[in-house]
Design a protein around this nucleic acid. Sequence first.
DNA 1: CGGCATCCACATGGATACTG
DNA 2: CAGTATCCATGTGGATGCCG
Lengths: 118, 118
Amino acid sequence: MSQAEQLEVWCAGEEWCALTSTATLLGRKWHPVIIDRLLAEGPLRFNALKRAVDGVSSKVLSESLDDLENHGLVARQVVNEKPVRVEYSLSGRGRSLEPVIDAMGRWGSEHLADPEES
Amino acid sequence: MSQAEQLEVWCAGEEWCALTSTATLLGRKWHPVIIDRLLAEGPLRFNALKRAVDGVSSKVLSESLDDLENHGLVARQVVNEKPVRVEYSLSGRGRSLEPVIDAMGRWGSEHLADPEES
DNA sequence: CGGCATCCACATGGATACTG
DNA sequence: CAGTATCCATGTGGATGCCG
């Protein structure tokens, strides 16, 4: 059972349950960027995605993709054996996160440059 | 220098910089809920907030509030000495997160109940 | 009431090297 | 190319107890 699913059970009934579950889903360091890059640059192969994200180690990228796949947000497809080529793309569910990712990105550009203004 | 600020410097120029910084800000377990509760229930005192969030330890709530205050999202005001009473409220900057929190909450209610549908 | 101090467990991520 | 295996440092939160 995933962490988000545990949360769902545990916080059931609380008004903020859905919120926390979503936060848990997007709370791992690279998840939002991975989704963002897949939204912007379409299906990508492992190393292309790694370059697009820039800064993530293959270990973490691999773990993140597993996690996102388990949550049904990302689809993994082996395009070719020998040499191995794999493509990652967003599922419908994954694409439905666009408004959320957008909201986060927009808030960041509008409010993070100068911490003093309200 | 906060983690989000380090990010700002480090990822400057990357398209997803603002996104990651926002994610870092909201990535700690209780931050989104705290903001949500303050949005919904207005200024709250420490223990009221703790009950509203339900599940946080005072240590973590305290740390989270410090963090949010340092980022200029939450304002702390001592209302009364002896007995000590303190009120926490959102700053304008904090309130500006409403669309983001909303987007997250809405996505959660629409997509987390049944992981199978896309 | 509104915290802080302590201790501890575990989650997470980075670096590096290696493989089919 | 697409990962896995290791090892290690740090982040993060929970439990408990105490204080002004």
